[in-house]
Design a binder for these strands. Sequence first.
DNA 1: AGACAAAATGTTACATTGTTGCAATTCTTT
DNA 2: AAAGAATTGCAACAATGTAACATTTTGTCT
Lengths: 165, 165
Amino acid sequence: MRQAPAAFQRGHDHDQCVHDALNAAIVHCRQEGTRLTPLRRKVLQAVWRSHVPLGAYEICDALVAHGERVLPPTIYRALEFLENNGLVHRMASRNAFIGCNQPGAHHHGRYLICSACGLVAELPAGDNMDRFIAEAHALNFEARSVRVEAVGLCAACAAGGDSGP
Amino acid sequence: MRQAPAAFQRGHDHDQCVHDALNAAIVHCRQEGTRLTPLRRKVLQAVWRSHVPLGAYEICDALVAHGERVLPPTIYRALEFLENNGLVHRMASRNAFIGCNQPGAHHHGRYLICSACGLVAELPAGDNMDRFIAEAHALNFEARSVRVEAVGLCAACAAGGDSGP
DNA sequence: AGACAAAATGTTACATTGTTGCAATTCTTT
DNA sequence: AAAGAATTGCAACAATGTAACATTTTGTCT
Ligand SMILES: [Zn+2]
Ligand SMILES: [Zn+2]
Ligand SMILES: [Zn+2]
Ligand SMILES: [Zn+2]
């Protein structure tokens, strides 16, 4: 069996996980010439601190808990920036946001969502995306972006495990 | 090129489309022993009248326009019933609902969503679903339901066409 | 440095979407 | 008919998302 995504590994070094994501974002924005301001960095950090997608108002609360007073419009604007720059993804089915582990603007997304603990892992794009796009094309539909969301149980929860980090 | 889904065929007999869907729902509920009450039937009809997904409040408005006074909680309950019985699907990315053309409780969903005219077509489950589930399984994730949403342009809109029904 | 323009953030007020709780009604079973 | 379950009506409310405008910060050009 292949290695489970980091989000599902209960023992993984999550501080490192967040740290690496922030560094990758800093590098990415420098390369693109976009501005990862302190506020945006804090929002991104809050999102990454959880492998369970966070809602906009939960991000507000998280920042307030860190002594930052930030209101919804500001959060939504920061999230808009982060999403446009491929640093977070919006999980529409949950009204919540998750950090992207493969920054770089627009790409198709494939997600595994545990219905028990809420953890979400993003998979790298696979060739079944291309097959689906080809299938749509045969129906005369030009697909620009494709999202696949699988809801089920992660290994820990399937094993009757406790809720995760 | 294969035949485009009915939702994307501007000339299709949409009255027939709605009529067939309602009949299929009636048969399905009779078989399952569930109750497609007048209210639920009206909600289902309102949803089917549009191949563009309707929000809950739009359904309210549609019913009011037909002389029915119905409030949100009632709509949401009817939609919950319809979704549980596989008669409508919720498009989370749009906070809206679309009729299912292949009733029968829980099945994976694959949708083509036109970003220009908003029309949505549901495709029958394909084998790329199975491949994806197998891939998830190899990562120790038990997928129970999978949704694929492709956003792009339908043939009419790609051709610079007008907005559709 | 000083002046200006652009971008980002703060703030208020509001719009939209979805839910809780309970009363009234309708359907089913005894 | 009487009791019990399911459905619907209704009022109030919670959660999510946005519009409009003021203020601050940042970058650029003299
Ligand atoms: Zn982590
Ligand atoms: Zn889990
Ligand atoms: Zn139709
Ligand atoms: Zn279209």
